[in-house]
């Protein structure tokens, strides 16, 4: 997610409870094929879900590989970043 986020940055995120989402929002989401949380940016609504992309397209694994995500995969919406010390 460089340059917006770098490894070790802390993100303050509010739980997602189904409210209206906007393209450009950074969300914490479950990976469609793996048991892990991911952080990505909403690109555009897609088939009732969202197309998500990383900010660093050359390096990111995102909807270009795993397709659109369901809205239910979204766990939280990032509201602020606390940069890491390094």
């Amino acid at each position: 997610m460089l340059p917006a986020l770098k490894p070790g940055d802390r993100v303050i995120a509010i739980p997602y409870r189904g409210e209206q989402l906007q393209s450009g929002a950074v969300v914490v989401m479950t990976h469609p094929n793996q048991v892990k949380l991911m952080i990505k940016r909403l690109s555009a609504p897609c088939n009732g879900g969202w197309w998500v992309l990383g900010d660093n397209p050359a390096s990111s694994s995102d909807s270009r590989q795993f397709g659109p995500i369901a809205a239910t995969a979204i766990r939280a919406i990032a509201t602020a970043v606390v940069p890491s010390k390094n």
């Binding site: 997610m1 986020l5 490894p7 802390r10 993100v11 914490v28 990976h31 793996q34 892990k36 949380l37 991911m38 952080i39 990505k40 990383g54 390096s59 990111s60 694994s61």
Partner: peptide
């Protein structure tokens, strides 16, 4: 804090 990854690997 829960860790969220920006990359799958």
């Amino acid at each position: 804090a829960t860790q969220a990854a920006a990359h799958c690997d």
